[in-house]
Design a protein around this nucleic acid. Sequence first.
DNA 1: CTTGACTCTGTACCATGGTACGGACTTTAG
DNA 2: CTAAAGTCCGTACCATGGTACAGAGTCAAG
Lengths: 137, 137
Amino acid sequence: MGKSSTISKVAKLLNLNVETIRYYERRGLIDQPEKPLAGYREYPAQTIQRIQFIKRAKELGFTLDEIENLLRLGDTHCEDIQGIAEIKLNTIQSKITDLESLRTVLDNLIIQCRTNPDRTHCPIVESLLPESQDISN
Amino acid sequence: MGKSSTISKVAKLLNLNVETIRYYERRGLIDQPEKPLAGYREYPAQTIQRIQFIKRAKELGFTLDEIENLLRLGDTHCEDIQGIAEIKLNTIQSKITDLESLRTVLDNLIIQCRTNPDRTHCPIVESLLPESQDISN
DNA sequence: CTTGACTCTGTACCATGGTACGGACTTTAG
DNA sequence: CTAAAGTCCGTACCATGGTACAGAGTCAAG
């Protein structure tokens, strides 16, 4: 037992893979921490917080590139961060809209399947096939 | 002018990249068509339909692996296809739900930003930082 | 006939977000 | 003290869905 925060302890604490933490370091999202004990990474609370920041931002749907920006902006420039968040909100909204129309289409097709008496022709497959198409030229 | 359906004509017709069509062939989603004229692929209407099927299914949110399954099942086994579609519908639904809660969180944060008088502390950044955390083992 | 556009094959590369492994070293539990 | 478990670094590999060559051959318009 000890308060030493080695990479696997941090990984366990934050429910991440050890390799993932090293990957974030390689990617420049976190600095390499001091390595006092025979070259083993010793994570200060600040770095652990930063990793947790990354994790939460990822859960919010930000990409690692975007998170890099967020981290660079730090806790200044609230407006810039707000801007990034607004762009993100827009992309999330259009993803939702796309998925909803997708859901409608798929839902209708499944209903047609359920009421389909002819098991040898599937309404889904038929909907995917072109009606008829002029190919020439 | 001509009725010959070379790869670039098909690509243009379906608004796909030539390389994408060749990629589908490599991946086994379509057979290599006959190559009568000096080894040039000559696409029969059937294959063009199949490519269009792939394209539409992709627009419906199916992955290429899933599309491969759909194509293997052909136009028989309506129930099996219905099953795949239902699974897909569920994953779409949970994606929508996830994105919606994401949107709510982000939306609230942006509103906090707008009404934030202290430009040097960003509510978004603060929400991502841990309150306080016991690190020691 | 020439020249540009098209096609062929095969292989390498792109982004994204990691995961795995080899070989060496260190720490820790028993 | 020994053996297992953890760590190091560097590099290779994974899935996904393509995209981009290079180098050679072919077709079509003028």
